[in-house]
Structures are given as C-alpha cells and as structure tokens.
Design a protein around this nucleic acid. Structure first.
Length: 278
DNA sequence: CTCAGTGTTCAGTG
DNA sequence: TCACTGAACACTGA
C-alpha cells in the first residue's frame, strides 16, 4: 500500500500528464464502496473541467480543477493511478501495480481521457481506496483531520518533542497514527524506528530529548529519501531494513547481519531488530 | 483451503 | 471524555 512516497510519485505523474489539460471523457464504475458520490455526480464534476494542479497531504491526493468540487483520492492498500505507455499495450503505474500490465488495467474504477489523447486510470483491486468530492479538500474531512505532512511539515525539534510528550502510545502505533504524522505507513514506521535505534514498543512519552531528536531526524530522512527515489525501492540504500523485512522469514537478517524479529503492534506486523533497538 | 497484507474506521475497553 | 486496541472491511495471491 501506498504510503507517502507512492502517493507523491502519483501526484507528480498526474501533474505531468494532466496539468493544463481538459477532461474530455470520464468512465466511472458504479461502486458505492470506493466512491462516496454516485457515478453521475463524479462524472459531472470531472467532465469538461480543466486540471490546474494536483496536491497531496499525507496519503491523500486531489486534483485542483478550474471549478469545484474537486476529486480527492485515497489509495487504500492496493489503489493507484496508471497511464498507457503505448495505447493498448503497456502501462505505467503509480501506487500499487495490479497483475496484467495492459490497458485498461484490471480493477479500473475511474478512467479519465484528456484533451491531448492521453488517459489516466484509477484502479484498486481490494477496494479499500476511496474517491470523494470536496469543495475545499484541505479544510474538510478527511484531510482536515490529518496531522503534519511527513514530507512538507515536519515540526521543529522542540515542537516535535512536545508532541511526543503528550502521547502514551507505543512509538509504532504513534507513527501509524495519521493525526500525528500524515503519510507514514507500516514499512516506513519500522524503517524509521530501526534507523533511530528505538524499540517499537517504547511509549512516546518516555523518550529523552536526544531520542526524540533521533526519531525526528530519521523520520525526515526516510521520508525524503524514499520520495527522492520516486518510490523505486531498488534505489533505497542497501542498509535499509526495507529490503529484508518481508515474508516474516524466521532467519531473516539485515544487510549488517542483525537478526530481524516480528511482533504485532496496533494490529500491524512490526519488523524490528532487538540487538539495535532499545 | 488458509492466511497475510505498504490502510482506515469504529466499537469496545480502561 | 480521552486514548488506545483490535476486529471488520474486501479481495488477491502465495
């Protein structure tokens, strides 16, 4: 699932493909789980409008159109944008890829045709993604309920320490809480805690100033580095836990040869390295 | 057939 | 009331 880096890669792709273009055709699935509004209203909002920009806060992405309301997308676990590379043949994916790399992709929920002949599709196999219409996304739920954007709005050290002091949740649960740091998901939370050398079960209000500063510094670099890699995980540093944490393998080791252990915290699989994280 | 999964929500609990 | 946890959601793929 798409965490902040995937959503940011999708935002950049949407800007590149659609900014300045008019939407000339819309196909919207009749899917009341993914779409908050009926298909006719989604269609009416998009058709004939011009895309001016695309914005992101945490894992939410929305189009700025030349009239309101605007569409707001959340990718859930398996959602993402796709566009054809060569019509009818291959496609380019931002967010989760789905099997069958042809156009239109499997599990397409929304297709948008642009005035230059290009197309965008929003697909979501598991249907945990959401598409909403909002007049002012930033000031309305769900975006208005989010905490600081983990890429753009990281609080300064003193403020960050104060935020930790008022929370008693385990660090892993806190990092996953979107009203704290918007955009951090399961693997990024584990990566941040591994690099900050902090036990995922530690309660936020027990951190020393030095530990809080370490957590903040790694939060910043993990987010910035994965965004800079445009969500291409092959470009993440070799030493990242990311490469070795999948599959809950009993004998899994980090690149430095440290044994990886698994826990469930806040209902999510948590990979960590007891020899390093205190 | 079973189960885990890159996410969010909400009922239940302390 | 607040904060937190875990089941539920819905579906694919290993």
């Amino acid at each position: 699932m798409p965490e902040l880096p995937e959503v940011e890669a999708a935002r950049l792709a949407v800007v590149r493909a659609a900014a300045g273009r008019r939407i000339v055709a819309v196909r919207c699935a009749d899917d009341p789980i993914v779409f908050e509004a009926p298909p006719a209203r989604v269609r009416r909002a998009l058709l004939g409008s011009r895309v001016l920009a695309a914005h992101r806060h945490g894992k939410h992405l929305w189009f700025e159109l030349d009239r309101r309301p605007w569409p707001v997308f959340h990718f859930g676990m398996t959602g993402g944008f796709h566009q054809p590379r060569a019509p009818g043949v291959r496609l380019v994916s931002y967010g989760r890829r789905h099997p069958g790399e042809v156009w239109p992709p499997r599990f397409t929920r929304l297709r948008i045709a642009l005035d230059d002949g290009n197309e965008l599709a929003f697909a979501d196999a598991r249907r945990l993604g959401r598409v909403r219409l909002r007049h002012d996304p930033r000031s309305e739920p769900p975006v208005s309920l989010l905490g600081f954007d983990a890429l753009l709005e990281l609080p300064p050290p003193r403020r960050f320490r104060a935020l930790l002091r008022e929370r008693s949740a385990p660090l892993k649960a806190l990092l996953l809480d979107q009203t704290f740091a918007a955009g951090v998901g399961n693997w990024m939370a584990d990566e941040i805690l591994y690099q900050a050398r902090l036990d995922p079960r530690r309660r936020a209000d027990t951190l020393s100033d030095e530990e809080a500063d370490r957590l903040r510094a790694r939060l910043r670099t993990v987010v910035a580095t994965s965004v800079r890699a445009l969500n291409d995980s092959d470009r993440y540093p070799r030493t990242w836990l990311f490469h070795d944490r999948w599959g809950r393998e009993p004998g899994a080791l980090t690149a430095r040869g440290e044994p990886i252990r698994y826990l469930t915290i806040a209902g999510r699989t948590t990979a960590w390295v007891p020899s390093v994280q205190r």
